[in-house]
């Protein structure tokens, strides 16, 4: 494949979950897309907005309850105990660090540096009472039409 056959493909991702593990999939794919000559946009909606909140993006958590796939299984009856979310999150952060994986703040910085569009769903923000200034700088605000307008031209899309 030669360079001139690259088409103006785009990657559109919907991020609707706000746990630490859920934040990785959209950010890893969106930050890699530009290296393959693709534009990328992430539409953050519902709990996905947590990934963009100034006071939470550095402290996203892992849910130990109803998560049978934890590398160290935590029974639900134990997972509900106080401190278990913090423990599971601590364990996950430890694995992330040991494996040399970029942090969520690093991936957000990279996304902005690469001109990945980070679109916060205005409708969900209104519903959940989230103000624009609660979100990190560089985020844009829009609704369904903003996202559909973006993906309507030669995009592949993924939802998380």
């Amino acid at each position: 494949m030669t360079e001139d056959t690259i088409t103006a493909e785009k990657l559109g991702i919907i991020a609707s979950h706000g746990s630490l593990d859920s934040a990785y999939m959209p950010l890893i794919l969106a930050t890699t897309a530009p290296a393959l000559g693709m534009e990328a946009a992430i539409f953050f909606t519902f709990y996905g907005l947590e990934i963009l909140k100034k006071d939470s993006y550095e402290h996203l958590k892992i849910a130990p309850v109803a998560n049978p796939a934890m590398p160290i299984p935590i029974p639900n009856i134990v997972g509900v105990l106080p401190g278990m979310t913090a423990l599971a999150t601590h364990m996950m952060n430890d694995w992330i660090s040991k494996a040399g994986i970029a942090t969520i703040p690093e991936l957000l910085d990279l996304a902005l540096e690469e001109d990945v569009r980070l679109i916060a769903c205005q409708m969900t923000m209104d519903m959940m009472g989230i103000d624009k200034d609660e979100l990190i700088d560089g985020v844009e605000f829009g609704g369904a039409a903003t996202y559909l307008g973006y993906i309507s031209e030669n995009a592949v899309t993924i939802a998380f």
Binding site: I28, A35, A99, I101, L110
Partner: peptide
């Protein structure tokens, strides 16, 4: 060395 996906590709690019 030591970098996990996707950093080797992003840095290479």
């Amino acid at each position: 060395s030591g970098m996990a996906c996707p950093m080797p590709i992003i840095k290479t690019n």
